[in-house]
Every structure is written in structure tokens, then in C-alpha cells.
Design a protein around this nucleic acid. Sequence first.
DNA 1: CCATAAGTTAGATGATCGTCGTACAATGAG
DNA 2: CTCATTGTACGACGATCATCTAACTTATGG
Lengths: 107, 107
Amino acid sequence: MSLYHPAREDLELPAVLHALSDPHRLRIVRELSRDPEPRPCGSFLLGVSKSTTTHHFRVLREAGVVAQQPIGTSKLTTLRREDLDARFPGLLDAVLAPSGAPEGVLA
Amino acid sequence: MSLYHPAREDLELPAVLHALSDPHRLRIVRELSRDPEPRPCGSFLLGVSKSTTTHHFRVLREAGVVAQQPIGTSKLTTLRREDLDARFPGLLDAVLAPSGAPEGVLA
DNA sequence: CCATAAGTTAGATGATCGTCGTACAATGAG
DNA sequence: CTCATTGTACGACGATCATCTAACTTATGG
């Protein structure tokens, strides 16, 4: 039994937005985009239990935000950037932008 | 007692994404962007009860996605496009894009 | 004043969510 | 083989969610 990954054309915006609406999952996606190397789930220090981590990665994977590939006892996770950019152009870039700047960042 | 509207600098990405992750609310936002005239809540035919409609508009307003101004017995709703664009550049455009096209739309 | 229209409030219900702990499976190291 | 590592499966728990009905408020139009 392999891991479910929705096809690119089956990605749904509400599901993607929901997946990204949790701070932990948003952080996972941000880290994945900053460091594009495939990483095992355990390398994200979320401050929650192992089973909760599993849960968050499943939500991301089933929404089509990340892909997971079992390697040994680990599961390497990558961001599905191409698929997301194809289906929802600009969405990932907007979500990943710093967005913590109030106003006069450039002043 | 006036309606709560978060200030532009208090908009939070997870809350905005959550507000947009519901199909009914997404549709409200899409309609608001297509027709920028302030509209009363009741003019959106969502197929749910009045109180559920109230609920969805509150979620959108408290996340800072829309603004509501009471006029008579109605409540005119507008999209907070400037604030959203300032805080999360490109997000609204990405979310409002058609995004229903599988692949070869232009072929 | 009365009736209608537009929303809100309150309370209920069933579903989903985020979280945990425990037990389990699978792989790699000694 | 044995053990540590990595992650999953299974409940369970409280919180939030989307939804409804019913009753209420507030304004507008006769």
C-alpha cells in the first residue's frame, strides 16, 4: 500500500488553503522551500509529538502540497512546487513571502 | 457595539488562509472581487440558512478579508483588497485566479 | 401602528481538527 | 540476532467548525 498523492489536475484550492492554514504546516512548507533538499519528517522540530507530526505531513501530502517517498525507515519529503505553481500560479510565492513587515520596510 | 475589524498590520496569514479555505467563503470573495460594488450579505445565494451566512461573513470579517458597514437593516460588504495586497502581496490574485484549467487551456 | 425584510443571537448537533500516549512495523547498525 | 531509529495505526480527548431552527432586533414602507 503506497502513499496517496493527488494528481496535479486533482489539486483543490480549498484543500490546499486548509493545509496551509495551520502554523505548524506553514512552517514545514516554509522550511521545505528554503532548503529544497528532501528531508525526513523527523528533521522538523515542531514541538509536538511524533503522531501529531505524522498527522500534519499526511494533511499536507493528501492536499498535494508535499510529496513523500519512503527511504529505509525514513520518509523523504519534498515540496510539490511545480504542481502547485501550475495549478495555482503565484499562490505558493505569496504564502512563502516574509509577510511580517508592517509598512515601511524599504523606507 | 461596533463590528470588529482587525487593523491591516494585525492580519494573520493562517487566519486568512483558513477563512478562504471554505468553498462558500471562497465564492463570496470571488463574487466580491468580480463586482466591487458593496453588497448586502443576503445577495449571495449560498444555499445555506441565514444564520450560516452570518457565520461565514463573520469569519471573513474577523480574518480581515472583508469589511462590513451597517446600512439600514442591511450590512454592506466589501473586499479589503488594499489591506490584503499590502500584507500578503499576490495572495488574493492567486486565490481569485480561475484555477480550474487542467493543462492545455491555451493549446 | 403594523407588517415585512435583513441580520443577529442562542442553543443544539454531528463532523472535523489538533493533540496526545501507547503499541506496532520496518529498516539499518552493532 | 538484537537493538535503536523512524515513522504509522489506533483510539481517545477537548476544541473548533459548519449547519440548522427558533426567537429576537432593527429599520423601512404602507
